[in-house]
């Protein structure tokens, strides 16, 4: 079967700094993929390359077998909760309606059908009671649910989330991950997370990015009782999370 997302030997430079070095990765929408790694390790860059907001310096990124920007109507992006303008005059429902941008007619207002879909997505994330509230009156966790609803309203096949829980407490984070886990029955989830424990609990695949990339299956989230050394190395994911390493042996060994 063809993979939904195929990254082959991608390197990326910001100005003259090498951010990502010859990484390869494939992904299918049935998986819940968590991207972890240190700050500045290239997590966001990798996500932006996946959806076409950045172009690789070398290598290729194929989404549904095409250039990411050509198929952007089939995916949706949930940014970090950085509401730069706190007073932005917009209601929750209007935010979700943005997800309908490329489904609705270009020069008219949103249709009743668009509104119906937007409302049903708000319901799906448990925010239907807030549709008339101004977005900045919500808590960080509520706001992220709205952004997830906006992504869902676009009828995307894969959701890409860039640290959606960065400013949310642990309880709120778990709520969001539970929601995403449920959604994963219908749509693909690719998520950057700074909280490794939460990420590993819900993911079926994990990649650790720090210029290079380590790939992991998490078949049944079985925590490791002790560090076994059968593969004769510890990779970053093992060391951070104490789950068993099952990746293909990388070039670098710690």
């Amino acid at each position: 079967m063809k993979n939904d997302l195929e990254i082959k030997n991608v390197s990326f430079y910001y100005d003259n700094t090498l951010v990502l070095d010859d990484i390869s990765l494939s992904y299918n929408r049935f998986d819940f993929l968590s991207i972890i790694g240190p700050n500045g390790g290239g997590k966001s860059t990798l996500l932006k390359l996946m959806i076409g907001l950045l172009q690789p310096t070398q290598g290729s990124v194929l989404l549904f077998g095409d250039l990411p920007l050509h198929v952007s109507h089939r995916i949706a992006y949930v940014p970090q909760d950085t509401l730069a303008n706190k007073d932005f005059p917009i209601k929750v429902l209007d935010v979700v309606l943005m997800g309908r941008l490329c489904k609705s007619k270009a020069f008219s207002t949103y249709s009743q059908e668009d509104k119906r879909i937007a409302r049903s997505m708000l319901k799906k994330v448990g925010m239907e009671a807030y549709e008339h509230q101004k977005i900045h009156t919500l808590s960080g966790g509520q706001r992220q649910r709205v952004f997830v609803a906006r992504a869902l309203a676009s009828e995307a096949e894969i959701l890409f989330l860039d640290e959606p829980t960065a400013s949310i407490d642990t309880a709120g984070q778990i709520e969001i991950f539970k929601l995403l886990k449920t959604l994963n029955h219908e749509v693909g989830i690719v998520i950057i997370s700074h909280d490794i424990n939460v990420a590993l609990n819900y993911a079926t695949k994990v990649v650790h990015v720090n210029r290079t990339l380590y790939f992991h299956d998490v078949p049944n989230h079985e925590p490791m009782k002790f560090f076994d050394n059968t593969k004769e190395h510890f990779c970053p994911i093992e060391l951070i999370s104490a789950t068993r390493c099952n990746h293909i042996h990388p070039k670098e060994v710690l």
């Binding site: 076409g52 907001l53 952007s72 109507h73 992006y77 940014p79 943005m98 490329c102």
Partner: peptide, 22 residues
């Protein structure tokens, strides 16, 4: 008036708007 939706989306979140085909 003509570009209201698009202007709103760009002002609120330009990257999201771009990915939605604006």
């Amino acid at each position: 008036v003509v570009f209201y939706k698009q202007l709103l989306a760009m002002s609120f979140d330009a990257q999201f708007a771009k990915l939605r085909g604006v």
